[in-house]
Amino acid sequence: MSAATRPVIRIENLVKRFGGFTALNGVSLDVYPGEVHALLGDNGAGKSTLIKTLAGVFPPTEGTISVDEKAVNFRSPRDASDAGIGTVYQDLALNGLASVTRNFFMGRELFVGPPIFGLMRMAEMDRITREEMLKLGIDISDPSQAVGTMSGGQRQTLAIARAIHFGAKVLILDEPTSALGQKQQMEVLKTIKRVRDLGHIAIILITHNEVHAELIADRFTFLSLGEVIGAGTNADLDSADMRRLMAGGAELAHLSEELATTS
């Protein structure tokens, strides 16, 4: 699918234990620029733990994470975002009462004069906000409108556009469609597709919904009980495989038996 050959992120044998509980037991996966990598699995499979480790929230117990083929050791979410890993959590970190522009630049305002009391370059910030949103297909005619007036899909796009503008090479989206209505889910999927089409950004999409994953993902990793139970590209897997893998580890034995008898 993608011409990229080198993974922007390589996770090797990642183990994460919480006390005696093994949440991740030797997970490996590669993420390529310009691709959507869907991370699928049942509740408790370890998806959130995996991305939180990647986002610098937890240190890994064992294993390595490499960004651009260099091993990294994140001590905080800040480290991860400085390395270009942008995480868009479900609450999106937006302030509904403030304008689109004020949200886009929240904490990273452009200003003239001294920091803190310096005056914001509002016209420039408005222009950048509009342009960055337009790249993802949302035309905000008035960047001074409150974020609270935007649809759920547009808010998601704002959070994504902000992460990209401030240097994310890898975008982690945690269940971006789960809290939305049908129409807005499609809007978000379109946004994700546009981000992929930018070509230089890798997307890790966490989802419960294998239909959504099938629609836009290039690569899949299925997690169950902290282990990878299946992985492959869109070409490798058909819908039936995906549904079985979604069902989890219990079905896996059954599936491989079935494969063995048919071959």
Binding site: Y89, D91, L92, A93, L94, N95, G96, L97, A98, R102, F105, M106, G107, R108, E109, F111, P115, I116, F117, G118, L119, M120, M122
Partner: peptide, 23 residues
């Protein structure tokens, strides 16, 4: 107009979001 003004609105509007964005 100022950067601090945006921080004041952000702090009161959604403190978690402000913190997550480094305010």
């Amino acid at each position: 107009r100022s950067q601090l003004g945006n921080w004041i609105y952000a702090t009161g509007g959604n403190r978690e979001a402000a913190l997550a964005n480094g305010v």
